[in-house]
Amino acid sequence: MISPVLLFDLLLGLSLLWLAWRTLAAHTLFEACVSFIVFGLLMALSWVRLDAPDVALAEAAVGAGLTGVLLLGALERAERARVEAAPGPWWRRGAGLSALLLFLLLAAALITLPPRPPLPLQEALPLAAAEHPVTAVLLDFRAWDTLLESAVLVLAVVAAWSLERSVSPPRPAPVCSEVLRSLVRLLLPFSILSAGYLLWRGGHAPGGAFQAGTVLAAAGILLLLSDLRRPFDLRRGYWPLALLSGLLLFIAVALGTLGYGGTALDYPPGGGAALVLLLELGLTVTIALAFIALFSSGRSRGDE
């Protein structure tokens, strides 16, 4: 008898594949977007089944929230875009054949992969500045990667801003219904509370800056979609500084540790946990503001 656990995993995997196919074969752009939102939801369940709660948290915020908003927000413009002619049948056949070949190669590599020995990382974990292994990797062992990642985020925002035609203030949000207004009033405090909770938990359990930042961004976008607050321009005032705060903090800590111990981002004994929390705080602000800026770019008055 096949166990329910195995059956669940099989069904989940097959639905992912089927949904992927349906997303690509969808008749309209809207159908493709909706299928992709459901796809993100099933991905979050797959992360859960693979014992990756950190990734599941991020996917729940990104896949179930942000991606859907981004895609649906771009739909109006995208539907009007002129597209080149559809590729011919031979081109499609070639693409299908190379996709099949790629799958066979990948599958063969995955099946024949020899079992790996336990990582030396397990022995280093007790020395890390954070108790939770994923946070320890992100902000201690591979802190350089995270520094550069925050730089990539800032770069994406600058690139998106440079594509805008004017520096006119954002278009005021259209008048929205009382239902949406009360919903936002109700959800906003909870979202901010959850973001703080996730950030705090990150030190010793699944959670951290990535998840907290995404949840905060979702809250900000919800606020922008309602007319509760006058639209704010992230390119003015102190906002750019706040956007940069994660990156600047990271660079400051790197320079400080370089001067103190001779190695950048090698935290002094005893001070690691506090520094990691500080970096995570800055990173949360940068991630949240970067996503909000990316969402609201192109929505200025002069762009429509």
């Binding site: 927000g73 938990r201 998840q211």
Partner: peptide, 30 residues
């Protein structure tokens, strides 16, 4: 699976699933 963090994932699902609908309504209105 005896994994308490999954309750947090459920919390995020409940909180953020509404975003898609709000974006949808905005798209229809536009």
């Amino acid at each position: 699976m005896d994994e308490r963090a999954l309750r947090d994932v459920a919390l995020l699902f409940a909180l953020l699933a509404v975003l898609g609908v709000v974006a949808f309504v905005r798209w229809r209105a536009g």
